[in-house]
Nucleic acid binder design. Structure first.
Lengths: 234, 234
DNA sequence: CATTTTTGTTAATGTAAGGTTAAAAGGCTG
DNA sequence: CAGCCTTTTAACCTTACATTAACAAAAATG
C-alpha cells in the first residue's frame, strides 16, 4: 500500500549502536540516513526530506535538543523522537519543550521501537490527511477558524486575525489547558528563539488577551519562565 | 536485539512455589528478585527499578493489596500482577482498585504466564510520556501538578508555585514518607551544595510549609544534618 | 550547661520575565 | 508611492523569583 519507503534520519554518535540500529531499521524496510553528530545531522536534514528524525540526546558538540531546535526552525512538522538514557527523566521535560513526539529509552526493546516508529509516522500521516480538526477550535464561547483566520464570538461577526495572531492562538488551542512552552511557539512560529522574538510574542499574547476578554471564562495564563496556558474555566 | 533483561520483582511467601516460578522466569530470560514477604518486597522495590511486579495476594503480615498500594504510592507506572489462589471475585475487584494490570490464577499455565508478562511489559513500554503521571502527585488533600506548577487544595483554587518551590516539593513527594537528603536537593535543584544554596533551600522549605499548613496531616519534618521528610499522617 | 552548628522564619534586595501601549519599520496592493 | 496592514522594537511599568541578611530557636557537642 505504501509505494515508497519511509525515510528516517538517525543521528547517533555511538558508532556501534548507531550502525546496529541503522541496519535493524533498514531490515524493516526503512530508508535510513545515519549522521554521526549534531552538525552532520543538521547538514543531512537540510539536504533531504525525512519522515522521522531519531536524535540521540547526548552527543558531543551539539546535543539532541539543540539539533531539534534547529530542525524545528526549518520544519515545524517532521516528527522527532529522542533517544535518552533510561534514568534521565529531566530529559523528558526538556524534549517536550522543543516539540518532541516521543522518546525512547536506551537501551530499548527493538519491537517497541518499531511499533513506536510506525505509530508516529502513521499518526502524522492521518493528521495531515484528516482536515478540519487541525484548524477549527472551540475556545469557550469562541470559534477559531485558523484556516480562514477568523475568530467568532457566540456565532456573531467574525474578527479577522493576523497570521501571527492566528498561529499563536492555534498553538495555544492545540495545547488547551496545558502548557504551551514558549520555546515551542518561538521555534514553530517565529523560527528563532531570542530576546526580540520573545518580546514580540508577548505583544501578541497581549493582543490575544484583548480579543478573548469577551468570554471571562477564557484566559491565557503565564507560567513564569516556561510558557503560556490557554485555560477554559467551567 | 534485546539489550537488557527485563526486571521482575516477585513477592511470594510459599518458598517452593516461589523458587520454581523464579527459576522458570529466569530460564525465560528475565531478571528476577524474589522477596519472601510484603515487608521485604517493599524494601527491595524501593532499592531497585523494576519492569514488573508479581505479588501474591495471600501473605502473612502484609498482603499483596497492601503492598501494591505502597508500591503505587512510590511509583504510579510500574505494572502490577497479582497471584490469587483461585478466581475470587472480591480479590479481582480489590486489585483493580489499587491499579492491578492483570491476574494470574494459581496454579496456572506457564505459557500463559509468559505471554501475559510479555504483553504487559510491552504495553507499558509503548505508552508515551505525554501521559501526565510523571508530573502529578497527590499529597494528602493536595494535588501537585509539577508540570503546570500549581498546588491545589481539595480541588479548589490552584496556587502557583515558583520553579524552585515546585521542584523542591516534587522531590519531597518523590521521597514521600522517606528521607530526602539535603545534598540530593541541592545537587539536583541548585546544582551546587554550599552554605548559601543550603540556606536558600531552608527558605523554600519554610515557604512550602506555609502552603501545606492547610492540611494538618501533611508536614515537612527536618532530620537534623540529613535532610527533610514529607510525611502524610493517616 | 555553655557554645557551636544547624535550622526556622521574615524581610529586604536585585534581577529577570512578563504586561501593555505606542512608535517605528516592513510589506503589500492599488 | 500612498495607504493599509502586519510585525518588530522601544519604553515604561509591574510582577515574579531567588538570594542574602538578620535574628530566633532547636539540636548537637564536648
Amino acid at each position: 500500500m505504501e509505494e515508497y519507503k519511509k525515510r528516517i534520519l538517525l543521528v547517533e554518535d555511538d558508532p556501534n549502536f548507531g550502525t546496529v540500529l541503522k541496519d535493524y531499521l533498514m531490515m524493516n524496510d526503512y530508508e535510513v540516513t545515519h549522521a554521526k553528530n549534531g552538525m552532520e545531522g543538521f547538514e543531512k536534514f537540510k539536504k533531504d526530506d525525512f519522515d522521522l528524525c531519531i536524535l540521540d540526546v547526548m552527543m558531543p558538540y551539539k546535543d539532541g535538543f539543540t539539533l531539534a531546535k534547529e530542525i524545528r526552525e526549518k520544519n515545524t512538522d517532521v516528527p522527532i523522537v529522542f533517544l535518552t538514557a533510561k534514568t534521565m527523566k529531566e530529559d523528558v521535560l526538556k524534549g517536550y519543550k522543543v516539540g518532541a513526539d516521543d522518546y525512547l529509552n536506551k537501551p530499548f526493546d527493538s519491537e517497541v521501537l518499531l511499533m513506536k516508529i510506525k505509530a508516529i509516522i502513521q499518526r502524522k500521516a492521518t493528521e495531515t490527511i484528516s482536515d478540519s480538526k487541525q484548524f477549527e477550535f472551540k475556545i469557550g464561547r469562541f470559534d477559531l477558524n485558523s484556516k480562514l483566520r477568523f475568530l467568532k464570538f457566540d456565532g456573531g461577526e467574525p474578527v479577522k486575525l493576523s497570521p501571527k495572531e492566528n498561529e499563536l492562538l492555534r498553538l495555544l488551542a492545540l495545547h488547551e489547558n496545558d502548557l504551551m512552552p514558549r520555546e515551542l511557539a518561538l521555534t514553530k512560529i517565529w523560527r528563532d528563539d531570542n530576546y526580540f522574538t520573545s518580546r514580540s510574542m508577548d505583544v501578541y499574547i497581549a493582543k490575544l488577551r484583548k480579543y478573548l476578554k469577551l468570554d471571562e471564562k477564557v484566559e491565557i495564563l503565564n507560567i513564569h519562565g516556561e510558557g503560556f496556558r490557554l485555560v477554559i474555566n467551567n
